[in-house]
Amino acid sequence: MSDPDTDRRPAEAAAATGDASAPRPVPYRGGGYRPVHIRGIGIVTFIVLIALVEWGTRTGWISNLTLPRPSDVLATFGDLWTTGMLWTHMAPSLSRLVVGAAMGVSAGIAVGVAIGLFSVVRAGLVPLVAALFPIPKIALLPLFVIWFGIDEGSKYALIALGTFTPTVVSTYGAVDNVDRTLIRMGQSFGLSWVSIVRKIVLPGALPGILSGLRVSLAIGIILLVAAEMLGAQYGIGAYILEAGSLYDLERLFAGVVILSALGVLTSSGIGWVERRLLDWRV
């Protein structure tokens, strides 16, 4: 038996000799299994990985066909910034994302709430949404070009459809999960249907809707690249596709980093909205 602490020695000794009458400390068994927030480790992981790639590409241990040199990616990004091309690409992409996602998300919430509230709608639309969900939206792009034109219309439609289905699913799930006793309470006080939906169901579903929105918007960003496959001269997706076809790894990675940043930005945006609107959560 080890005795790391001298103060414990008499007790340990007593335990060792089997003297049951001597007081012994109860051993601590409750550690671990508890995620602890450690600041900075995430950043350090990034820095170490990037430094490793930089070192690898400089020494030739990683060939220039495998990965671009991080400093070159940074320089490419700097060029994008100084030439103003960053905004030339960002502006159309952002507007596609904002318009497409706004259409998809608002339609998705409306349909999701309707499914949550009306059994007829649920019976009619849940199978349809389940059928739409797994369709790779990229496969429909040529069709959308015929329906909505090769310009912004088809791009909005693609992103809208892509964000629509996950929003529907998360919204009706959120409506289903609204505390039934609250709805019962509203009915028992004779509140009108509109009041119950507006004041009880929608606020109660908001946490679920917002967390679903994280997924929907991430899918929207993924689809940005797909949407810009057809007929887009400018846009982050078009930039990445062009870099890919030119096998220009520096530009490819610069574009990918911009998309990642966009993802982090929307996610933290939703986090901010959650803190503002959902401060009532326990």
Binding site: V145, L230, G231, Q233, E242
Partner: peptide, 21 residues
């Protein structure tokens, strides 16, 4: 001219037939 990237020959043919390009 404006150059419209469409990725695949099939997509170009579709766009040309429907007058998108």
């Amino acid at each position: 001219m404006q150059f419209v990237p469409l990725q695949k020959v099939g997509a170009i043919i579709g766009a040309l037939k429907s007058g998108q390009v």
